[in-house]
Design a protein around this nucleic acid. Structure first.
Lengths: 322, 322
DNA sequence: CTGTTAGCGCGTTCAG
DNA sequence: CTGAACGCGCTAACAG
């Protein structure tokens, strides 16, 4: 058989197979791209999801559209994919309504406000931030700066940004440490300026003294955070302890600092599994029963919230100098 | 009409359309991923190619396989895409033979040894390296280090790596400057060590004195190059001029240094155009004439070699101190 | 120019 | 158990 296949060069047409079986063996990755924004984690996620899909016998269709929901709707309606994986999830995400309305199988990388709407998986950003704050407090730090994602991310109600800030606030409350939440800016010069102000010239009149720890949740800032801090005239870790949240595994830039890594491979594998599971479940049930589809998708919402782990860098958490 | 479409919620099935018309309106992006390697430019390229494809009315299928050629062959044979865009091109790339054998329309990001095999587009890496060397020489530098991509990239005969090195060598010959070609390592600590040796403890006995300029072609190293150099005890630009080749536009890390940027958007747009052109040409001709396909694809090989531009950073090219 | 029909290639089903 | 035929949804080609 196989030799005949090879000899004749025969290969089934995917389109005919799909037309007949109504399965595409394709997963769509919905990657919204606000004009002009560059997100360092998009690429790695896309590649890992693709790998995970291949392992499950699926191909990956990359859907990048300015208008978040439009591309996804088109893909679902034209039957280009069996399921969708949604990246860069907002608290209330328009795409969630779209896939529910169309009864289209989907899974999210990111934890939306309505946790039972769709299957999702995410790092527990809130717990990560709270954990770092409390570990730093335990090491003796009383004044910290939490450098959250940019203002734009917060305005967009991006899930990871809001949850990170919530965790930092909770950590501050439960430990009694003073945590100033600031927003990153993409421009490195601007970021350096902001850090200088935050770390050396306390705007609040210096009620509690100079901050001794900096927590950085903005992924794009990880690379130049050291330079920025050094430029501000501070030595690490003598003057300032720096901890990174959401560092990419294998990223050399983050390896020196204590950090909570973003488990890209795990998240990608899990979200793909969830998406494929929803697709197969729908396919097996929807035969003849048009009501069953939406009901089934609503019931089969699994979650995986990944607990944060604080990894030591080359330089471990340091106690502030007296 | 449109209101009827919206009201009835009708949308044509892509699979039926494809089966009938033998056009998928999908472009495959072949992104080989040697196990465990992370390439910083893959993500941005994938996203830009996706955007370019959408603009031309195509969707993008991301094909990441360990075995470079196998995924591509499957996509072509099963008719999942109308054309392929090939990334991370080697001088003699196995995938080139595959698409030619199958008469499958394809275009490359990268300049292969056989320039007439397929349409391609690339930054002129050779000219970029030669340009930087000669500009540095003109500024008075006599001893330079060219930090090329890793040994592994060279062994794989990756096009951009070999051409960059060739350009550095040519630049050295034509200017009389001494250019030491070294290979980057992915481990940042190892890189720092290597740089220290190269920049301060010349292994050749110091025949020509300490290097006064460093040219970095390794994309992954751009982020921590400043830190590594600073750690080696050298001040920029007083002790050493650093120039970066292949920096990503908009990457904050590279913006401070003089650099030749990798025009990701242009390359992505152009390669997508080439791929779509090949696909439509094949489609229009192949009707009934089985011979015409391969002939046509062989004839329609357009190229675009992008001339490098040396951009000033915050700190312009500096003459070496006497 | 508009309406009708055949068939793209596969998987499933039904008859032999 | 093996083989033929039907139909998935669309578009191109053809007839009116």
């Amino acid at each position: 058989m196989q030799e005949a296949v090879d000899a004749l060069g025969y290969h089934p047409r995917a389109s005919a197979r799909t037309l007949r079986s109504s399965r595409t063996h394709v997963i769509a990755l919905a990657l919204p791209r606000p004009a002009g924004q560059r997100n360092a984690v998009d690429g790695p996620f896309a590649i890992e999801v693709s790998d995970a899909a291949v392992r499950l016998g699926y191909d990956l269709l990359l859907t990048t559209s300015q208008d978040k929901a439009e591309g996804l709707r088109r893909v679902a309606l034209s039957g280009l994919a069996d399921a969708a994986v949604l990246m860069a999830v907002d608290m209330e995400d328009a795409r969630i309504d779209v896939v529910r309305e169309l009864a289209f199988p989907a899974a999210l990388i990111g934890r939306p406000a309505d946790e039972d709407a769709l299957p999702w998986t995410d790092l527990d950003w809130e717990e990560a931030a709270a954990l770092v704050v409390s570990e730093l407090a335990a090491a003796g730090h009383r004044e910290m700066v939490y450098l959250a994602p940019t203002e734009a991310e917060v305005v967009a109600r991006r899930s990871y940004a809001l949850r990170g800030i919530a965790g930092a606030t909770r950590g501050a409350r439960s430990t009694g440490a003073a945590v100033t939440v600031a927003h990153a800016v993409d421009d490195p010069a601007g970021l350096a300026r902001r850090l200088r102000v935050l770390l050396t010239e306390r705007a609040d009149g210096g009620a509690g003294g100079r901050p001794t720890a900096l927590i950085v949740q903005h992924p794009s800032a990880h690379h130049h955070i050291l330079t920025s801090v050094t430029d501000a005239g501070l030595r690490i870790p003598e003057d300032l302890t720096v901890v990174v949240i959401g560092a990419l595994p294998g990223d050399p830039a983050g390896r020196r600092l204590p950090r909570v890594e973003l488990p890209v491979e795990t998240l990608a594998g899990e979200v793909t599994r969830l998406a494929v599971a929803a697709a197969t479940a729908l396919h097996e049930t929807a035969a003849g029963d048009v009501e069953a589809g939406p009901r089934l998708l609503a019931d089969a919402v699994g979650h995986l919230l990944i607990a944060p782990a604080l990894l030591p860098g080359d330089m471990p958490l340091t106690a502030p100098r007296a």
